[in-house]
Design a protein around this nucleic acid. Sequence first.
RNA 1: GGGUCGUUAGCUCAGCCGGUUAGAGCACCUGACUUUUAAUCAGGGGGUCGCUGGUUCGAGUCCAGCACGACCCA
Length: 489
Amino acid sequence: MSDPLVDARLEKVEALRAQGIDPFPARVPASERIEEVLRRHEGLAPEEHSGARVAVAGRLMARRQMGRATFLDLRDGSAKIQVHAAADRLGEEAYARICDSDVGDFLHVAGEVFRTKRGELTVAAESWTFLAKAIRPLPEKWHGLKDVELRYRHRSLDLLSNDETRQRFVRRAKMMETVRSELTALGFLEVETPALHPIPGGTTARPFITHHNALDLDLYLRIALELYLKRTLIGGIDRVFEIGKCFRNEGVSTKHNPEFTMLELYQAYTDYEGMMRLAESLVGAVFQAAVGSLVVDYQGTRLDFSPPWRRVAMLDAIAETSGLELGTLTAPEIVDAAKAKGIGVPNLSRPQLIEHLFDRFVEPTLIQPTFVTDYPVEISPLAKRRADAPHLAERFELFVMNMEIANAFSELNDPVDQRTRFLDQERLRASGDEEAQRIDEDFLFALEHGMPPTGGMGVGLDRLAMLLLNAASIRDVILFPALRRKDEA
RNA sequence: GGGUCGUUAGCUCAGCCGGUUAGAGCACCUGACUUUUAAUCAGGGGGUCGCUGGUUCGAGUCCAGCACGACCCA
């Protein structure tokens, strides 16, 4: 199916070639960042000419043509500048050619800088060349690209035509910078560990599976970074972090993308209490750097990140929100107690029931930053037991705006207990729990050589970015979110 | 998986109770215009109304199914 707008542009490309002009030249004349040109001429008064000749390169974003003179807006990655092209300055041929350029083309323009009487800094073009032709028209210049589906599917155009989109990803990059600089300043070393895992470990989630042909080996895209980072701890890198993609073969929603960016950090000689303090200071630093405040508006809700954040034990939170006092009730007793309160629950194990009730009653109430503590040890197979309550794990999850943002433990470093926990998981797996974790002998071998007492934490950086950038959907903070395939006819 | 809403020109959008040849702005083409900045003025081209079926004398409009998306729920 041919598009007349594209055909017209392709004809222009051919016409240029016929005149011996390369619409996509390999060599680029020297130029300066537009931002720099603007900055250097800040003091220029209206109608004043600088006498300075500059060269700029960028994309033609708009044109205002008036017969023998034309104004053009040129934009590079730093800023936008106006160009004044006049027939008597450029010469007839070069002027005719610039009139034939299209919005979307990349141009190189050289000339003197002056300021118009309306105060706009402008390059009076003395010469210009094509740097690259565009053969499709850009989205509407005033409204930009509005259609949400097109914005996700054609992010290049969203970035190009919507300033807020570009700003959002600039601010996301600043968030990453702040996380790195804060952790580095605390002596953490950034490392990279494998994304292809022979055994998917570190959490419970359905993995993506792939196959290495030469090794004839099934491999899994990592669902967490945990077990490799712990190996570096065992090796003596006792403050370590990684920022990387994790992959979970699960549904997509406004809070879930199948690949997402995780921060995991491990600090020896501390525990999950230390991780709470680190979470408060790290998230605080990120908000200070990006927003300049610990109190922010998120989609109409005021969020206050001032420390200390609320702490609540899981069973207390369930009791507060559902009225169910679980205490030491067994699974069948919990089902009965729920039934007595008119709450229908599925037939699950005790820890699964606790998780179910938590998700149903507590999570929807967690708006302000809250550390939920005292998770059942059965659903925390990599966390230390509480010395005073061995059925509970030294673990917290951080919730904000009903979203899990972080998950942290006093890391289990007793290799015998760790083996027991893995075996418990294997038993669950054998009895049909596909999500149960698998025994990782290579990790246990490393752990048996000794791991220091350690606090560890994982942070979902996309969700943190949502809070920071006031984004309603995770797709708004991921450049190229996962979408269903759409066949173009 | 269920519910609600949406899909009309490259982009942003109108299109009423089913009734001539589906409209506008931007973009594009032609012409006028040497300080405009959403430039202006005059003219022109551009449509498988998401797809498939159905109801009807007649469907962008009503009905069903499907695709894709948004939001809510599980």
